[in-house]
């Protein structure tokens, strides 16, 4: 069982180092060796692409879980930076604090304005602490709720980027009503007459995710996951065995592909070749196109139709049988 996504990327990193070395030789060397270098370069690039093609088409649920958490995957503000214009981040829940694990603000895509909220992670130790590892406290959800109100008043569609291991589970969060804040987030989202689209870009961690993700449409990136509990937690509860993560991830069927099969999400968005972490630009382009496509779909509906469709969508979720 892999412990980190870097394990299966090791051969790739070696290949890429080789490619980089050949490229620098190509730049320096005289033309006598040029064709030889070029041939070698093409061979290495083919091996790299083959490895990626094979490995990334066979990732299991646990491997996808690890990849969804990879620290060099793009985070919410990377997507904003890539395709949102005139971004103005807005801060604070007007009650207690400004949560750093959920960011929000106003921005435009294709000259149309949106309210955008999303979980925010960071890559270095200090940043991670600052962002609380993407685990929002009540004030994060309440900031989002405030922005949802803004969206409704000014008729702006809402984009949610989902990427959190879970909501913050500490004493502070419990004291200030983390459960109420998450519930109120969903409640508010169901009241909105403007279209809302959520995109799971990494980890869809349970209540912490759905608190800003009860949207008209829910999209998932190819290597993102969405789960009621992390595989580690599931393994600990069911088998009292934290090394059974692999088994738990399979049992939970938490991949984007499974969620689509169940009809619980609307579309799986392909990442760039080799995953969002290797190929962010193609991933940004795909994400942007998909968001705009779904908003265009929803644009013709009246506020009442938006609410009704959203209600019906969630109303149908859940398989039961009557004996």
């Amino acid at each position: 069982m892999a412990k980190t996504w870097r394990e299966w990327e090791r051969p790739l990193i070696e290949l890429e180092e080789g490619i980089a070395k050949l490229r620098s030789m190509q730049a320096e060397e005289a033309s006598t060796k040029a064709t030889e270098i070029e041939e070698q370069l093409q061979r290495l690039e083919r091996s790299r692409d083959n490895y990626i093609r094979v490995k990334y088409s066979r990732l299991g649920p646990w491997e996808r879980t690890l990849l969804s958490r990879a620290e060099n995957r793009p985070y919410t503000l990377d997507y904003v930076g890539a395709f949102v214009d005139d971004w103005v981040e807005l801060h604070g829940d007007r009650r207690h604090a400004d949560d750093k694990a959920i960011v929000g603000g106003l921005g435009s895509i294709d000259e149309k304005s949106y309210v955008i909220v999303g979980h925010q992670k960071a890559r270095d130790l200090k940043g991670r602490q600052y962002r609380n590892f993407g685990m929002a406290k009540p004030e994060g959800y309440r900031k989002a709720i405030r922005l949802f109100d803004l969206a409704e008043r000014f008729k702006l569609p809402v984009i949610s980027f989902i990427d959190t291991p879970a909501a913050d589970p500490g004493l502070e969060s419990e004291s200030r009503g983390i459960s109420e804040a998450i519930a109120a987030g969903m409640f508010k989202m169901f009241s909105l007459g403007v279209p809302t689209v959520a995109l799971v870009i990494g980890e869809g961690g349970s209540g912490g995710a759905i608190g800003i993700g009860a949207s008209s449409r829910v999209l998932m990136l190819e290597n993102s996951v969405y789960s009621v509990i992390p595989p580690e937690g599931c393994a600990a509860i069911l088998w009292r065995d934290p090394t059974a993560n692999d088994r738990a991830a399979s049992a939970l069927k938490l991949t984007a592909q499974s969620a689509l099969e169940f009809g619980l999400v609307d579309e799986v968005i392909p990442e760039g070749f080799g995953g969002a972490h290797r190929n962010p630009q193609d991933t940004f382009d795909n994400a942007r196109d998909a968001l705009l496509r779904h908003f265009a779909d929803l644009a013709t509906l009246s506020p009442d139709q938006i609410r009704r469709q959203r209600y019906e969508k969630y109303r149908r979720m859940g398989v039961t049988s009557e004996s």
């Binding site: 519930a183 169901f190 759905i210 969405y226 789960s227 009621v228 969630y314 109303r315 859940g318």
Partner: peptide, 15 residues
């Protein structure tokens, strides 16, 4: 019931 269970949170909140 995995993600189906999680979606019950949304469904009941909608209700």
């Amino acid at each position: 019931e995995g993600l189906y269970s999680l979606m019950q949170m949304a469904k009941t909140s909608a209700a």
